[in-house]
Amino acid sequence: MRVIIIGSGVAGVSFAEKFRSHSKDDEITLITKENDGYYSRPLLSRGFSKNDIEQSIILKPFDKLRASGINVISGAEITSIDRGDKSVAITGPSQEKSIHYDKLVVATGSSAFIPPPFMPYNALFFCLNSLVDLKALRKFRQGLLNQNRRPEWAIIGGGLIGCEVASDLAVSGDNVTLFHAMDRLMERQLVAEDSALLLEVLKNSGVNVLLNQNVHGFAKQENKVCVKTDMTTEFDALIVSCGFKPRTELAGLAGLEVGRGIKVNQFMQTSDESIYALGDVAELPNGKLYAFILPIRSQAHWLAGFLAGQEQQSWTPPVFTTKAKVHGFEAVHPYNL
């Protein structure tokens, strides 16, 4: 049997490795847009305080996966799924333009969610969703440091990632202003008391936190960019961190059932019985997306066992917690996940 996996995040890679360990004969091909190897997305939010991050973030080079019998096609993109003849169309370095599958695992993950009012300005801001994003940010930042300038950042969005990035830039010595729409930080994950504690920690590390902000647009002014609320404030650069958006386009175009994510049953199976979805892109019957490392690895390992015939029961979410990687912050109460 030939199994094709789309995506080399924790979902795709954990599945490929586990399935390889169960099955010696099946052909496993993993196709990914990435070029740099399998890297840790959580470490992106430590991307400024760690100097060697561009190397140390790589958990596994693709050659290591290849050496273990996984056929990795990197720097390539799947552009469509043909469910009729069970094939995917591929662009990039590969000779083949279309590859047949017996089973397809969609692990395309998520991109940064950009609120529609910000879309027209997408040339004016950065996001922090991938290693490519981080490298662009670091290059920009280094340019300012080389001119002996202390970078002035605006972070738009005080959720998990916004708070983490604000913290990491501040401890790295930069000037940071965090704009948040709500009256408290990380209101979705934290109880009010912990939001207040987080606010204190960020302020103490020098972050200028602005709550109840209605950011309605951005503008360019010479070599500065402006954030528009009731007032207009200038910065060197902006990072929009307003949540994530599952990459469901391929599945949607192929006619699979799609909600916020690609809809799967308790067996991680989409509305097509040969196609499965895992990770940030998978929406379970309870309407939930399990967008954290621990449950995603659990899904991936479970599916590998299931396809290898070693698992009969459906996937059940493990108990897990998370933690905002804000320097110096420990929540008192459990997170709401």
Partner: peptide, 8 residues
């Protein structure tokens, strides 16, 4: 040494 699963 770092976490084999997330790198921290």
């Amino acid at each position: 040494w770092h976490c084999p699963e997330c790198g921290v």
